[in-house]
Structure formats: structure tokens, C-alpha cells
Amino acid sequence: MPIFAKCRRNSGLNNHGFLRYRSSMTLSSSPSKRSFLCRSAVLLLAMMVGCALTSDDRKIQPIVYSHKSHIENAGLTCTDCHSSVQTLAAASIPNLEVCRNCHSESLSESPEEAKLLKYVAKAAEVPWERVYKVPDHVYFSHRRHVVAGRLECEVCHGNVQQFTMPVSLPEIPVTMENCMSCHRKHNVTNDCLSCHR
């Protein structure tokens, strides 16, 4: 077993996955951005009291899409839009076709919906930013976790049905330590070859 002892130690390098992630956020903010932040500090303070994460790692989505209104008011479930979450590795982000089913004409006064209608008129896909992403050398499968593992989306993605703003930061950062610690809890294998490829 010396190899496995070694491997365990390697993964220990990633023990501070979350901490590393947070500190990298502050390190990656460039000087120019910092001075910009200083200048707009008053504004920021006024607008974002209590919002600790004013980080540049936040993804700006092209449309302020609300999960809450679609699940509570439009009565949709996760699989209506993320259609392959139970059948494939990737959950998939819905394409314009899905939105057009309902948004072929205006349903509300919202300026954000007007933006969507512009995409619909142009028949151009909305350029959503991906928030959760594993690198290409890791195999992550939703089918495995949602169907075989019977995990709820909340465990990894947070309480999405209450989100009125688009997803912009990962609830749980996608790090090896976060994958492995849940696997340890559920007694699932942490063999390198089960995730890496």
C-alpha cells in the first residue's frame, strides 16, 4: 500500500482547496482594477453593504435571468431546461429554442426580458457564461450523481430555485478536495482513475 499512502498525501496538497480559491481571487485582482475599486468605494459601500464577495471572479451573465420566477411562477422543473441532467454527463444550458417556447412574445414588463426578445428576434444564442466547470482531465457525470447517487442539486449548486439573480459564483468551488471529501463521506471510491482521464 505505499502507493496509496503517497496518493493520500498528494491529495492533502489540495486540502485547502477553498482557502486557495478565495486567496487566488484577491491575488488575481490587478492593480488597475484595485484602484478602480478604490475610486468607486463610496458607491460600492452605498450599494453593496453586506455583500462581501465583490470579486472579479463573478461571472457577468448577458441577461439577468431569475431561476426563482421560472420555477415558482412559470412552474418549470430543473429537467425542463437542464434536460440531460439525468441522462448524460453534462446537465446542459438550455438553448434559445427552449426560451422561445414561451418567450415568442413579451410576457412581462421586464427590461431583461426585452433583451431576451432581441436574441429571439436575431435567432442568436444567448452567450451564457459557465460558472461550474471541471477541467478536461476530469470526468464528472451528472447522471452518476443525480440518478445513481440520488443527490439533490442543492448539495452542489445551492438553493437555485430561490435565486433571483443569475448564477455567477459557484456555491461549492469545483476543487478536487471538495469532490473527495464528499466521496469519503459517502464511502465512494477516491481512486485517481475514477475521476482523471
Partner: peptide
């Protein structure tokens, strides 16, 4: 020296490139 190559319980000899 870094445990990038190892034999897994199913007998596959793995190579973890990033390691």
C-alpha cells in the same frame, strides 16, 4: 517520486498527467 503513476485496485496502471 510523486505518485503520478500507480496500480489501481482493478489492476490498471494509471498515469495522472497533471501530477
Amino acid at each position: 517520486p510523486v505518485g503520478a503513476t500507480y496500480r489501481n485496485p482493478e489492476g490498471l496502471v494509471g498515469q495522472i498527467y497533471h501530477r
